[in-house]
Amino acid sequence: MFFWFVCYLVVVWPISGSDERCPELPSVDNSIFVVEEMEGQILGTYTCMNGYHLVGEKNLFCSASEGWNAPTPKCHLGHCPAPVLLNGEFSSQLPVNVRDKATFQCHEGYILKGSNWSQCGEDQTWVPPLPICKKRDCGPPEKPAHGCFEGRDFNSGSTITYYCEKWYQLVGPQERQCIDGEWNSTLPACELIQEAPKSALQTASEEALLAFQESKEPCKAVKNFVERLNENGLTMEELKYFLEIKKAELKVKMLPRHCS
C-alpha cells in the first residue's frame, strides 16, 4: 500500500523592524518549502518531492513594500514530452511518467536510425535520444566536378558508376551502392592529368630509354642508359616523373568511356 504525503509549512512571516508581514502562500502539494530571512527580505525555496518536477519559480522573495515577487509554483508528477516519430509509430502510455519506456517502429519503406527504445529520465528527458525514420532509398547522388555517373535507380541495393571527362582521371571508388538510405562510400573526384612541362624532358627521357633498348646485354644496356642520362643532364627523378605522365595518358586512352 502506498501513501502520498503533502509536505508544506504554513507560516506568516514578520519582517524585522517592521509591523508589516508577508502574506501566507497557498499550499503546494508534494513539495517542501524552506524559508529564511535575508537583509530585510524573506527568501522561500520550493523543492518538489521525488517523482515530481517544479513548474514556476523555485525561489521566491518577499519584501514589506512589494510582497512576493512571483506566483506560487506547482509540483507536477514527473513526465517527459510526448515522443514524436515522423513516418513511424511508438508504444507508450500518455502522459509519460519518469522511468516509463517507449518503443519505436518505422512505417514500411523507412528504416530506424537510433535506438528502438527510450526511457523517460529523472530530469524529464528521453535517454537514449529519440530516433528518426529515414527512407530506405537514397536521393540522387552528387556529381564530381568534371565527372558524371551512370544509373537512374536510387533504391536501396542499387549501384551507380562514376566516370570523368576526357583528360581527367577518377580518384576514389568508381561504384557506390545505396544501403538503407545512405551511399556506402565517399564521393570520388576527377583530377586533371598533367602533361609533361617541357618537351626537352620528353626528348631526353625517350633517348635514355632507347639507349637502354639498343643492347641485348643487360650490363651494356644499363651502361648506355646511364651515359645517355648524364649526357642530357637528366636525373632519375625526372625520368620517373616522365614515366608517370605516360602511364596516366595510357590509362586515359584505355578507359571504356568518358562523360559526354
Rank of each mutant, 00 (worst) to 15 (best):
A248C: 03
Q177L: 00
I193W: 08
T125Y: 12
Y163R: 13
V171G: 11
S185I: 00
L192W: 11
Y168L: 13
Y163C: 12
A200V: 02
G147Q: 01
L229K: 10
P131H: 06
E165D: 13
T235F: 07
I132C: 06
E238D: 09
P188T: 10
E175N: 11
Y163L: 15
S185G: 05
C148D: 11
E249C: 06
E207C: 01
N155Q: 11
S205R: 00
V222G: 07
N155F: 06
M254N: 09
P144F: 09
F154Y: 11
S185E: 04
E238H: 04
T161K: 14
C138F: 06
P140S: 13
E237P: 10
Y241N: 05
P131R: 08
I160N: 02
G147K: 01
W183I: 00
E195H: 06
S156A: 04
C190G: 08
P129I: 09
L170Y: 11
L170S: 11
A200Y: 00
L187V: 05
Q174P: 06
L234C: 04
E175R: 09
V127Y: 02
K135C: 04
I193L: 13
E206K: 10
K134L: 03
P173G: 02
L243R: 07
T159L: 15
K198R: 14
P144W: 03
R152V: 01
Y162E: 09
Q202D: 13
W167V: 03
K135Y: 03
Q194G: 00
A145Y: 12
Q177D: 00
L201T: 03
Q174Y: 06
N224S: 15
T186N: 10
L187D: 06
F242D: 03
P141H: 05
L209C: 02
L234W: 03
C138R: 00
E217P: 12
M236N: 04
E244N: 13
E150R: 13
S199D: 14
F154C: 02
C219N: 15
A189V: 14
K134T: 07
P128Q: 01
P144M: 07
Q169E: 11
E237Y: 07
E237L: 12
V252C: 12
E175D: 13
L201P: 02
E249D: 10
K198G: 08
C138S: 07
G181P: 03
T125V: 14
A221K: 13
V226L: 15
A204Y: 00
V222M: 15
Q213K: 04
D153V: 02
D153N: 09
K247E: 15
S215L: 13
D137A: 03
A200F: 00
W167L: 06
K135S: 10
G139F: 06
P140K: 04
S215T: 13
Q202F: 05
L234M: 04
K247H: 15
N232G: 04
K135D: 08
D180L: 10
E175M: 12
I160R: 01
E142M: 12
R228P: 03
S199F: 11
S156T: 05
C164S: 08
P188H: 09
P129F: 04
L209Q: 03
Q194S: 03
I193N: 09
E206Q: 14
K216L: 15
R176S: 00
E165Q: 12
E142G: 12
S215V: 07
K246M: 09
I179C: 01
R228L: 09
N232S: 08
P140W: 05
I193G: 09
G147H: 02
C138K: 05
V171P: 10
D153P: 01
K143M: 07
